[in-house]
Simulated scan of single mutants.
Amino acid sequence: MVDKSEKVVWLARVGFAVRGLVYVLLGYLALTAGKADVDDGAGDSFRVLNAIPGGPVVLYLAAAGLVGYALYRLSGAVFDIERKGTSWKGRAARIGYLASSVIHLVMAWTAMRIASGARGAGKDSSSGMAGSVLNFPFGETLLGLIGVGLLAAAAFQARSAVTAGFMRHISSSAPIFTCWTGRAGHAARAVVMVLIGWSLLRTAWFGQSNEVVSLGKAINNLRDMGAGFHVVAAGLLLFGVFSIITARYRVIPDPAPTKGLRAISI
């Protein structure tokens, strides 16, 4: 009989694969299509999937995987299953995991809405969601914490791109090109995380939800970089390939808060 923690691990693997597919499609759209085709980020990728035969079923399965991945990241933030500790560096990493959990829950919700044919589904709702959070008590603080978490995650992503530390948590039987694919992907993802995290901090400071940028908008904001934009877009596509590879070869500890768990990277 499969216990609950093992089910979450398998859902996390599906989540890695779904995340990979989203980034592959997003990078491809950024490289080959116009600005409007990537304005919503993950939602644009989900609309592509929804258009294929059996698309809604695929999206519901994708949403389940993203929820599993979000729960896995939440376990890292709350139970410290990756053993980051309570140092400032460990706390920053755990806040990053919390931010990642929230982002992937939003992605799962978007996938379900598109699959169900909900009105307005797939439209960029970043500003609207931020506005809703600002209406809650301490909403500015919450958005600020998520922004800090994303900036911390961006720093870890950049370090991983340089050191390839993520390979410590990949099986030795993974394809030989996994390392360089991961390095390029982590570097590109660090760039867009900085843009999104900074937009959340500006929203928390000024209290204006229109400061928030989605993944798609963050990519579009780089278009004026010319060749730099194409490098980042290609890097995001490669991050998708890396995520699909790691869905199979990632060493994932039991999400239950037990002793002796191995740490993994963002």
Rank of each mutant, 00 (worst) to 15 (best):
A188Y: 04
A233T: 05
G55R: 08
L66Y: 07
G207E: 07
R202M: 11
D3A: 03
P137I: 14
P257H: 05
F136T: 15
V18D: 04
S214Q: 06
L236D: 04
R19S: 14
V148N: 00
V231M: 11
L98T: 08
P175D: 00
G216S: 10
F46H: 02
F138D: 14
A187N: 00
S5T: 15
M225I: 10
S125N: 10
V67E: 02
T203S: 09
S5W: 15
A164H: 06
G55S: 04
N221L: 15
A108D: 07
I196H: 05
A184D: 00
L66T: 07
F166T: 00
G131H: 00
G185F: 01
D40S: 15
I245A: 07
A51N: 12
L21V: 10
T178Q: 08
L11A: 12
A190N: 06
L237H: 01
W88R: 14
A130T: 04
R119I: 11
H169T: 13
A121Y: 06
R73W: 13
A77W: 10
G34I: 12
S171M: 01
P56N: 03
G120M: 10
A17L: 14
G235M: 02
K123Q: 14
A190C: 02
D224R: 11
G149Q: 01
A93S: 13
R83G: 13
L98Q: 05
S209A: 15
L142A: 12
H169C: 01
M129D: 13
G20W: 00
V232D: 04
W10V: 12
L201K: 01
A118W: 05
S75I: 01
R83V: 12
A227C: 12
A111S: 08
G117Y: 02
V67Y: 03
L29N: 11
V251A: 10
I219P: 00
F16T: 06
K217L: 12
Q157A: 13
G197E: 07
L49C: 01
L25P: 07
G27H: 07
D224T: 09
A234I: 09
L29G: 05
W198D: 03
W180N: 11
L222F: 09
T141W: 14
L236T: 09
G226E: 09
W10E: 15
